[in-house]
Amino acid sequence: MAAAVTNIFAGLSLVLDRMSERRDEEAWLAEQAGCREARYLLLDAAGESYLLQETEGLRWLSGAERSAWFADVPASLLGIAGGCPHFLLALDDAHPFDALEERLAARRIGLREAGLRLAADEAGLFAYAKGLAHWQRETRFCSGCGAPLRRVAAGHRMQCTDDACGRLHFPRTDAAIITIVEHEGACLLGRQASWPKGRWSALAGFVEPGESLEDAVRREVAEEAGVRVGEVHYHSSQPWPLPASLMVGFIAHALDPAIDLRDGELEDARWFTPGQITAGLADGSFATPTRLSVSYQLLAHWLRERAELELDTLVT
């Protein structure tokens, strides 16, 4: 059964109405952009935003500030939250970002740091805005005829400017699986050579064309660790706009514990019992995946279900 968990960047639908059915209503959009409650989130060309110096919150612009400083930057509707319209302003390299820090009394912050510092709703809005801005920057020419594209639907679609083509382009999300594999009281974790010493994580990989999520789990685990997987059960998902992924988490069951690392994707892969994880956390030889990732939640769920251990209390 799926865990009752909300991953970082997830759960935004609890506070935000994306208003997707009204994105083509130009008069309504103008009304929202001009109302007193409108808020604007700035993202620079690197996808970073601005954090208030006094509090742990994003520096949103008012409508007046947007008109005074960024009237030339098209606004993309994120939705309505708390009765206030929320918009994205994606800046380009022409704007002096360092000068903005002083003007806004705020410092630049990346999404990874924001996910661990911000309240859940602001972290989710930042992730949503970052994913949308990345797609807008990367989608400038029609893949059908090569003509330039223009932004429509409040920034959520691109349309070919060649009337003979007119093709619409929609934001893309790359699906990826991430999984804890278990066998006879142990779980399979892997590590890459570039990671900090002692860090282990769930195995992950992108879904290929014509492949179900469950089959992607079986293929990726076989490719990375040589382990054959049978049953696969959904756990939870997490938007991961770094730059454009959706991580779909699973608990899988191995048919055989034999590990074969012949393809070289991982530096190492091992089976860990709850006792080995607990001991490794205590002596510093084992490090969990970052709390930012659904991988941490998968490990926490597995320890809770198999050994009644709470990972948060084990990690110091």
Rank of each mutant, 00 (worst) to 15 (best):
G249N: 09
A252Q: 09
E231M: 11
T273C: 07
M247Q: 09
P243R: 12
A252Y: 11
P257M: 08
P243G: 12
F250P: 00
H253Q: 14
D260E: 10
L246P: 02
W240R: 04
A252M: 11
D260M: 04
Y234E: 04
L242T: 07
W240M: 12
D256N: 15
G249P: 03
S236T: 12
A244S: 15
A244N: 15
H253W: 13
A244G: 14
L261N: 07
D260L: 03
R262S: 13
H235D: 10
S245N: 13
R270A: 15
L242I: 11
L242Q: 14
E231A: 15
F272Q: 01
D260H: 10
A269N: 06
A252R: 11
P243C: 01
H235G: 01
T273E: 08
E231T: 12
E267K: 09
P257I: 06
A244V: 00
L242R: 11
I259V: 15
W240G: 06
A269H: 07
A244Q: 14
W271P: 09
G230P: 06
P257R: 09
R262K: 09
P257N: 07
G230K: 03
S237G: 09
R270P: 05
F272V: 02
A252W: 10
L261S: 09
V248D: 00
E265N: 10
H235V: 06
A254Q: 04
A269V: 08
G230F: 11
D263Q: 12
E267N: 03
